[in-house]
C-alpha cells in the first residue's frame, strides 16, 4: 500500500496522519508533504504513526530531513503513535535522541 497522508489542524500544530509503509516509495510522499507545509508557514508538525507498521532507512531519512526543514524555520516536528517495533528501529539508529516522541496524540493537541 502506498503511503497516504491525512492532514488536520489542531491549534498551531498540523497533524499529518500517515497510513502505509514508510520506505523508498513512501519517503518521497512524506518529504513532499512536509516541504509543502513549511512553504505555507506551517512549522509545527506532528507526524501520527498510528497507521505505519513498517519503516526503513529511507523513511527515517525523510523525517530527519523534515526535522531539519522545520527547525531551520524555528519550528519543530513531533512523532506520535510510534509502535514498539518501530521504536526499536529508532533506538537502533539512536534517533530516539533526536525526535520528541509521545504515545499520546492529545499531548500535541490544542
Amino acid at each position: 500500500m502506498n503511503l497516504e497522508i491525512h492532514r488536520s489542524v489542531e491549534g498551531k500544530n498540523v497533524f499529518l496522519g500517515l497510513i502505509g509503509d514508510l520506505d523508498m516509495a513512501g519517503a518521497p510522499v512524506l518529504r513532499q508533504s512536509i516541504v509543502k507545509e513549511v512553504s505555507q508557514g506551517n512549522i509545527f508538525l506532528v507526524l501520527d504513526f498510528a497507521g505505519v507498521h513498517f519503516i526503513d532507512s529511507s523513511g527515517l531519512g525523510s523525517i530527519i530531513g523534515g526535522l531539519r526543514r522545520v527547525r531551520s524555520n524555528q519550528g519543530n516536528l513531533f512523532l506520535v503513535g510510534v509502535d514498539d517495533e518501530l521504536q526499536k528501529i529508532f533506538r537502533l539508529c539512536e534517533l530516539d535522541k533526536i525526535f520528541k516522541m509521545d504515545s499520546n496524540r492529545e499531548t500535541f493537541s490544542g
Binding site: S57, G61, G65, L67, R71, L92, L95, I98
Partner: peptide, 22 residues
C-alpha cells in the same frame, strides 16, 4: 554523532548499519 547539529544534514547512510545490526 547523534548529538551533533550536523547529523540532521544526513538523510542517508543508515541502511548498512541497520543490515549489520538486524
Amino acid at each position: 554523532p547523534t548529538e551533533s547539529p550536523e547529523r540532521l544534514q544526513h538523510e542517508r547512510g543508515l541502511g548498512l548499519s541497520i543490515m549489520r545490526e538486524m
